[in-house]
């Protein structure tokens, strides 16, 4: 499928929802598919441009080598850190069991 005819479909929305850790009802899936497809369709003007020779801009104002000296500063107090935690135990953040390992 060429970029021009590519339109975002229901499976795409289901896939990105899963990547983004969001659950959608069937009704939401239908509605979001229509809405997101409209935005992606609008973006076809950009997708169709031949800009291979143009450098991408990831920072609007070019800068380089912004560095910090290796000097220890202040940390937060543990009480302060854990005060925000939905659940904690033994000075650590408590979460339900973890299935699978970090990639």
């Amino acid at each position: 499928m060429s970029e021009q005819s590519a339109t975002l479909g229901r499976e795409d929305v289901a896939h990105v929802a899963s990547l983004a850790r969001l659950a959608l009802t069937d009704e939401e899936l239908d509605r979001f598919t229509v809405q997101l497809a409209r935005v992606i369709d609008h973006a076809r003007d950009v997708a169709a441009l031949d800009v291979a020779e143009v450098e991408p801009t990831s920072h609007p104002v070019p800068m380089r080598n912004v560095l910090r000296p290796d000097v220890v500063g202040e940390c937060l107090g543990r009480h302060e850190v854990l005060a925000a935690a939905p659940e904690c135990e033994d000075g650590r953040f408590k979460v339900p069991r973890v299935i699978g390992e970090a990639p």
């Binding site: 970029e3 590519a6 992606i40 973006a43 950009v46 997708a47 441009l49 800009v51 143009v54 450098e55 991408p56 801009t57 990831s58 609007p60």
Partner: peptide, 13 residues
């Protein structure tokens, strides 16, 4: 490449 990368190039333009 079709979307994000291209949009960043359009930014340059």
């Amino acid at each position: 490449d079709a979307y994000y990368a291209k949009a960043q190039r359009v930014r340059t333009l």
